[in-house]
């Protein structure tokens, strides 16, 4: 495991906190600007013997499908998020590892682990509070010009294999 500098750590944490805030505030277009063209956005069921691509996931979006997901949220007709749920997530236990072989020339890439606890107020239907605890894996990169983006986010819900209530927001 390659250690990262304090400066790298600060920049990566700033990226993740910004991503969390934009998702919390349902600012879909700005959130999408933080993800790269090879983004994979994944919420597995968990607890299965088989892994993708043979297993069903709650969400397994390549970049194209993620664009559709964001576009659907932006139509103003996505009832599952009309109105958008007030959200508040806390990221903690952040661990960062530099990836030895970046997939893009000139880029620096990092794998990040974190814990996330997200509170959702379901104002569009039951008006009840839902809690979404998860361990999260990210992959992020700084391109040659030093701009930061995410290209992988895997949200491993603690209760992913149990019945989940409607999850229409960006988790």
């Amino acid at each position: 495991m390659q250690l990262v500098s304090v400066e790298e750590q600060r920049q990566i944490e700033a990226l993740l906190y910004k991503e969390a805030r934009l998702a919390d505030e349902s600012r879909y277009a700005e959130w999408e600007e933080l993800v790269d063209d090879d983004m994979y956005y994944w919420v597995p069921v968990g607890g299965l013997e088989v892994d993708t691509p043979q297993a069903i996931s709650v969400i397994a979006d390549n970049r194209k499908r993620l664009s559709s997901r964001v576009a659907q949220l932006k139509t103003g007709m996505r009832h599952a998020q009309l109105p958008a749920s007030p959200l508040c997530r806390v990221l903690s236990n952040i661990e960062i590892e530099k990836l030895p072989e970046p997939s893009q020339a000139g880029a620096r890439e990092y794998a990040v682990r974190a814990n996330s606890i997200l509170y959702e107020m379901r104002i569009q239907s039951t008006q009840t509070l839902e809690v979404w605890p998860a361990r999260v894996e990210y992959k992020v990169r700084a391109d040659a010009a030093g701009a930061w983006k995410l290209f992988f986010k895997k949200v491993m819900l603690v209760n992913g294999s149990e019945p989940l209530s409607t999850l229409g927001f960006l988790i």
């Binding site: 709650v58 559709s68 996505r78 009832h79 599952a80 229409g168």
Partner: peptide, 14 residues
């Protein structure tokens, strides 16, 4: 829960 179709059906049923 996150389906392009069923997420909306779920909320309407509720």
């Amino acid at each position: 829960p996150s389906g392009f179709l069923l997420a909306d059906d779920g909320i309407i049923s509720e």
